[in-house]
Design a protein around this nucleic acid. Structure first.
Lengths: 214, 214
DNA sequence: TAGATTGTTAATCGATTAACAATC
DNA sequence: TAGATTGTTAATCGATTAACAATC
């Protein structure tokens, strides 16, 4: 196995590499060097080479990298043959937006069901997927392979929800709530999108810009 | 000045500290130790103390930290007297959701205007804010203090938009697009929320879970 | 062959963690 | 006073960057 342990910073850079390489490919470029990639990525040639070598190194000494091969290799890393089955919990404003995003812009992830605990929403459809009662999610997960739960519910609801998760066989959570699922179950792979935290960190930096810059 | 340079990891932890301390405060706790905070944060007592000492250290040796004082100090760091003025560019599904979020859940940030280049949307209202033609944004920024632009538009639109920014006096961008504004202007403070990248990193970790864990 | 550029090892840098004296 | 817990300095760890031999 070429990747005994790929560090999180490297994993987080993969989608960005893929974006830029996709651009190079559609621009008709066939070769690219680590220096050129570093320039677009805003990093260093060393880092580019270190990163690719986590996966076995796709380059040719003296020549550089084939855009085609790089594209194929990274695509294969990011999108294996079996795509991931995901369900969404929470059909409010954010949930609807995220459902739309996953259905239209996310390769390798299938949105198969939507749940909500608001009985006014249950039975209605969102982007042609029927909204089911949140209480039926464990049943759904036992009958269908579900790898990922997308959480777009308030924190209080997420808290009550956490104990249920262990029964579902779910591997990961895309977490838009302020509840920290990883504290409940360490084996879960959690990716947090904390909009409030993100905006607060940004506003801190804007407010303290003059002090922090030398 | 107590914070000559606070590192980004520390800044990103501030909103989380604030969340937990807010909880402790409403639970009626008056004192908390670095070990207790580390437990909730999922970090170490050392890190908690190091972090707080970036800002001067709010604790009492032998006693711990006053929840009240900690709350006030961090609130003051995150929400100075003057709140930030923000405008939103892009009134689509994501833009509408983010506008709703900023108006209802974001302290210290005022959403003062919304722009879109779709003339079908211009003139309509979103959460009681009238949508203006994107072409008028420079004019708007020259007449009003705008600190932050929230970008919820497609990448192609963001690209064309970048050169305009330098005329606006804007300090930061909350960037939901795939266009990298920091490459265009290094002095801009950019906080990226790349939903696609986030989901791709998560799906990589789910797919390669068995390999990466020892 | 000479020039270019990778793969890979070594050095640096910065962030996290540990240790301990100060002090409530 | 003894115990607890901070503030702060030192040690460790991991990620980034530099260097250079391998090789196209």
């Amino acid at each position: 196995m070429t990747n005994p342990k790929v560090s999180l910073p490297v994993i987080r850079r993969l989608p960005r590499y893929f974006r830029y390489i996709t651009e190079l490919k559609s621009a008709g470029k066939t070769r690219v060097s680590s220096s050129q990639l570093a320039e677009i990525m805003g990093s260093t040639p060393s880092q580019v080479r270190q990163d690719f070598n986590c996966f076995g190194g796709f380059g040719q000494q003296g020549i550089g990298y084939s855009v085609e091969l790089l594209y194929d290799e990274i695509a294969h890393l990011l999108f294996p043959n079996d795509s991931i089955n995901a369900v969404l919990v929470g059909a409010g404003s954010l949930g609807a937006t995220i459902a739309n995003f996953v259905l239209n812009e996310a390769d390798g992830v299938n949105l198969t069901a939507i749940f909500d605990n608001n009985l006014n929403l249950v039975g209605k459809s969102l982007h042609n997927i029927k909204i089911s009662d949140a209480d039926t999610i464990v049943e759904y997960c036992s009958e269908n392979k579900v790898d990922l739960i997308i959480m777009c519910i308030p924190k209080s609801a997420a808290e009550k929800f956490a104990p249920v998760l262990s029964c579902t066989g779910v591997k990961g959570i895309w977490n838009f709530t302020h509840y920290d699922f990883s504290i409940y179950d360490k084996s879960l792979i959690v990716e947090n999108v904390h909009l409030r935290d993100s905006l607060m960190a940004l506003s801190y930096r804007i407010n303290h810009n003059d002090e922090t810059e030398e």
